[in-house]
Amino acid sequence: MRSLSLLLLVALAALGESEEGGKHHSRTKREFLSRSKRRWVLSTIELEEEMKVEYPFKISQMFNDKTEGKQYEFAISGEGIDEGLFSINKLTGDVYAHAPVDREKKASYHITFDVFDKSTNTKIDRELAFDVDVKDINDNAPRFTAITKEASVKENTPSGPRETPVGPPE
């Protein structure tokens, strides 16, 4: 019994050292981790379809804190760019819509933004992609197809579901 107690005591001491060592290791590991700020700051871009505004219409502005102290330029690519629907002011990061959008034609546009160092023409930060969602304004009236069904019901038939008769039809 005495040797069992001694063995248990040694096992508990060893277990305590390994836990303490594990905590020290994770604390050391945490000390090397550092927080970084979000470098891309964007507002969510949501457009209402068929907006009656003066175009080009500013829908958002790009900002990246890695550009501080550098000569930089913004670039935009993706759906709606080649068609001239969306553009960006390369210097200010202002994003513009150039025409009304129609949700029935396209519900969202996938857009990619980049920021480049003007002197080296290299990317300052990772590109960011997100969607420009088009909000529906219910501009299409609902359509119903005319459905005509004919049925015959015998007189004095009780209401409710009817069991299917077994045997030949009457």
Rank of each mutant, 00 (worst) to 15 (best):
R2A: 13
R2K: 10
L4G: 02
S5K: 14
L7V: 15
L8T: 12
A11V: 14
A13N: 02
A13F: 05
A13I: 03
A14H: 04
A14T: 02
A14L: 10
L15D: 05
L15N: 06
L15Q: 02
S18T: 09
K23D: 08
K23T: 14
K23G: 12
H24V: 05
H24I: 09
H25C: 08
S26W: 08
R27Y: 07
R27D: 07
T28F: 04
R30Y: 05
E31R: 11
F32S: 07
F32V: 02
S34A: 10
K37T: 15
K37S: 13
K37Q: 09
R38I: 04
R39G: 12
W40L: 00
W40G: 00
S43P: 06
I45P: 03
E50N: 15
M51V: 14
K52C: 06
K52L: 11
E54D: 11
Y55K: 03
Y55I: 03
I59V: 14
S60K: 00
S60C: 03
Q61Y: 01
M62T: 05
D65M: 00
T67R: 02
G69Y: 04
G69T: 01
K70Y: 03
E73F: 11
A75K: 13
E79L: 09
I81P: 01
E83N: 14
E83H: 11
S87W: 01
N89P: 03
T92C: 07
T92G: 05
Y96E: 02
A97F: 01
A99I: 02
D102M: 03
E104A: 14
K105I: 05
K106G: 02
K106L: 04
I111P: 00
I111Y: 01
N121S: 14
N121T: 14
T122D: 08
K123W: 04
I124N: 02
R126K: 12
E127Y: 14
L128C: 07
F130M: 07
D131T: 04
V132P: 00
D133G: 06
D133P: 00
K135P: 00
N138I: 04
N140Y: 10
A141P: 11
P142C: 06
R143C: 11
T145L: 08
T145H: 09
I147L: 13
T148K: 09
A151N: 08
K154W: 09
E155R: 06
T157A: 07
P158N: 12
P158C: 13
S159P: 05
S159C: 10
S159E: 15
P161K: 14
T164M: 14
P165I: 09
P165K: 15
P169K: 06
P169W: 05
E170W: 09
E170H: 13
